[in-house]
Design a protein around this nucleic acid. Structure first.
Lengths: 250, 250
DNA sequence: CGTTCAGTTGACCATGATCAAGAGTGGTGG
DNA sequence: CCACCACTCTTGATCATGGTCAACTGAACG
């Protein structure tokens, strides 16, 4: 069974056996474990490693002058933190563990060897970087334009599809460890309001969320509820859950 | 006098004379002009060129299923649209002209020649890409966490510093062509509320905005009003307007 | 000189924030 | 094994930021 990073990158391009072997090596060496709610990387630092998430959930977040924090993205298996390491001076945001987080440390040398010898992988890594930028744009739209109900529905759709693309879903169910506080911080709402809105979504049968497991009984209905259009994820294989009706409007 | 792209990239790295000559060529060939309020690139298309903005302002925006649009970034001289062209299948957002826009078309071949022969420039281009990703993150924070007043103040600070880094400011004044409608779309507010909030900022002497010109009488005060911390812009030369008080909190 | 778009103002309303308190849950150490 | 503590979830009451709707002014441009 291929690892999550390989699966992700194959959303974009066909990799050779040599590429795959290299990516497997990536995940094999110097694995380390971060306990829940601890930072993997902190704002203002210049970490020595590129981290590949093997297992667990994390969050990218920014801290404001007034002490509040905003989650700007979730981090799931197959995600890298952070390519910009070797280009930007210091981190402008933090990465925190939501669950226990297993990550592989990739050193500068290893990374450079890949960039030099594996053009396929290099391009695929930049693809991943650009997709995650596109996700940032969608989050701007999410918090700026959608109602509380739409924001949450949208977030559930996105995370489900992202997990599916790395093989971490079973049917329409997946792990979903963020607390209501995390959801609040990711959607720009308060935890109180997230709680009430979640109850609405549950009452309408759009999501089942209990014991950190998410089930989506009707993906198409949830996509409608969140004004969700998966194009921004740039998955090659998104035919499955794509709502064909999406393209009727305008 | 160097062009805007050269100035921008030199925020990041020292370029050689050969690099600079190459960048000048970049901007010299096949220049074309887009009238105000027309799209340079539309969502869903796969444009044939990489565009370098030479003159004027534009916006990156997404259109929602319900017809509303959200500006996710402004585009000013020295910005590129879009590096992802050669990697992603199709545009997931549009680029529209706010003013008349002069852009240089850069073909795939030209671009590849640069990537192959000018590693300095290539790295600097990725730096620019990563910085613009960081700006996306800050916009998420802006719309999710800040009040209307803070959002506008923050936006003015950001755009002023971005223009300054390409040499398009005089003292504390710069061009600022977005309409109040544009500002509304960029901040997730309504035009009515932008109008009222702007009046507050003006009344408090924080901004002077008339006839598409912006003046910031007290940069430090405006930064405070917007909870603005310029670190996310990753400018090397940001000592000037950086508020030293910023680092006292927390 | 009229049409269009940007800016402005007022009245009213709704979404979601704030504050506060309590219930359920899980992990820890005595 | 139980007691305690901390965190997550839940509910209620009240409030405020910013949205909506509508009308009007002013400026720009053909």
């Amino acid at each position: 069974m291929p690892n999550a990073l390989t699966r992700r990158l194959e959303e974009f391009t066909q990799l050779t056996d040599a590429d795959r072997a290299e990516l497997t090596r990536f995940g094999g060496q110097s694995v380390c474990t971060i306990p829940p709610r601890r930072d993997l990387i902190s704002e203002g630092t210049a970490p020595a490693f590129l981290y590949l998430v093997l297992d667990g959930w994390g969050s990218r977040y920014r801290t404001l002058e007034n002490g509040r924090t905003q989650i700007v993205d979730f981090v799931v298996p197959g995600d890298l933190c952070d390519l910009n390491l070797f280009i930007l001076d210091r981190m402008d945001h933090s990465i925190g563990a939501i669950t226990r987080l297993r990550v592989a440390e990739i050193g500068r040398d290893d990374f450079h060897r890949v960039v030099t010898n594996f053009p396929n992988i290099t391009t695929a890594l930049w693809w991943q970087e650009l997709v995650s930028k596109s996700i940032h744009r969608e989050w701007i739209v999410n918090v700026a334009q959608r109602s509380a109900r739409q924001r949450l529905a949208h977030l559930f759709c996105e995370m489900f599809l992202r997990l599916e693309s790395v093989g971490l879903t079973e049917g329409f169910t997946c792990d979903f460890p963020p607390t209501q506080n995390d959801l609040a911080s990711a959607t720009g709402l308060t935890a109180v309001h997230v709680n009430r809105t979640l109850q609405d979504l549950r009452a309408d049968g759009l999501v089942i969320l209990e014991r950190k497991r998410l089930t989506i009984p009707d993906m198409s209905a949830l996509q409608d509820a969140g004004l969700f259009n998966p194009a921004y994820l740039h998955h090659r294989r998104l035919a499955r859950h794509t709502d064909r009706r999406r393209h009727e409007h305008r």
